[in-house]
Amino acid sequence: MRLGDAAEVAEACSGDALVLWGAQGMGPGVRAWTLGEAVAVACPDLNRRDRLTVCGEAGAVSALVERVLAEVGPSYRVVGSRALVDEVAGRTARMRVLGSFEWMDTPAGALPPGPADTGAGRAGWLEDAEEGEVSALLARAAPSSWAVPGVAGVRRWAGVRGDDGRLVAVAADAWSCPPVGFVAGVATAPASRGRGYGERVCRFVLGELAAAHERVALMVDTGNHAAIALYGRLGLRGRPLAAAALDGA
């Protein structure tokens, strides 16, 4: 059955934050379906990929994914809880697991602990004219970042400057939607790590997005233990995810 709007998606997925993020408020090009206890939402060009976020019972999700991919095409990557995606890939012909990572989010309505910092080196939103500096910092500190200035869905950047006035840490408000604010592009200049700059910019962006959205979320590599520990201190809780795709996609 096709789902018609964001409210129907929220009810069908019981408020699953990942699926709500994948629905992007049911904006242009987004489609959603349900089959028994399964929900699937297809969103084009979300976090630089066509993504099919899923939740529900594995058998129903597998059947739904096969139907949906036949309709939307093989470019869509299935994203969901790690155990679910592993089982769906095992049940689906020519589908392989691409990798695993962590989804971290705040409980609904929760604010990150502590106030935004004040004084020297404080974090704040950057002007458009400063995005060249953001690009240069990302090229040095996080060349594989999915979020970079100018990419569709990346809305604004926050940053911290060091004592010499140089930009030393950044984070983006990217691919956010009404129920879920999303943080991406977190990076700290290599020479400035270990001084709390990354925590300052993350705390600022999390607080700003938490004030405007029901939840705040981000994704992080499973092996990035330092970042996972930081986000945990800031009130986010983790959930293991995986992505899968049809061969050749």
Rank of each mutant, 00 (worst) to 15 (best):
L3S: 00
G4T: 09
D5L: 10
D5F: 08
E8M: 12
E8A: 15
E8N: 10
V9Q: 04
A10Y: 02
S14Q: 08
A23K: 10
A23G: 11
P28A: 12
P28W: 02
V30Q: 08
W33G: 00
G36Y: 10
G36R: 10
E37R: 15
R51W: 02
R51I: 12
T53A: 12
V54Y: 07
C55F: 03
G56W: 08
L64I: 14
V65I: 02
V65P: 03
L69Q: 11
G73E: 01
S75W: 12
R77K: 14
S81L: 15
R82H: 01
R82M: 12
E87K: 13
E87D: 13
G90C: 03
R91L: 15
R94F: 09
R96M: 12
L98Y: 05
F101D: 03
A108K: 00
G109N: 02
A110I: 00
P112E: 05
G114L: 14
G114T: 13
A116G: 14
D117M: 11
D117F: 06
T118S: 15
A120W: 00
R122S: 11
G124D: 01
E127Y: 02
D128I: 03
L137K: 09
A142M: 06
P143H: 07
W146G: 13
V148T: 14
P149D: 04
G150D: 02
A152E: 10
V154M: 12
R155Q: 13
A158M: 07
V160Q: 07
R161D: 00
R161C: 02
G162K: 08
D164P: 06
R166L: 13
V170R: 07
A172C: 04
A172S: 10
W175H: 12
W175L: 14
C177V: 02
P178D: 09
P178K: 09
V180E: 10
G181S: 07
G181A: 09
V183F: 05
G185T: 05
V186R: 04
R193G: 00
G196E: 07
G196W: 10
Y197T: 05
G198S: 06
E199N: 06
R200V: 10
V201W: 06
C202K: 15
R203T: 05
V205C: 02
E208C: 06
H213S: 09
V216W: 04
V216I: 07
A217Q: 11
L218H: 11
L218K: 05
A226M: 04
I228V: 15
A229S: 08
A229F: 05
R233I: 09
G238F: 05
R239H: 14
P240A: 15
P240I: 09
A242H: 08
A244I: 12
A244H: 07
A245C: 13
L246I: 15
L246A: 14
D247V: 11
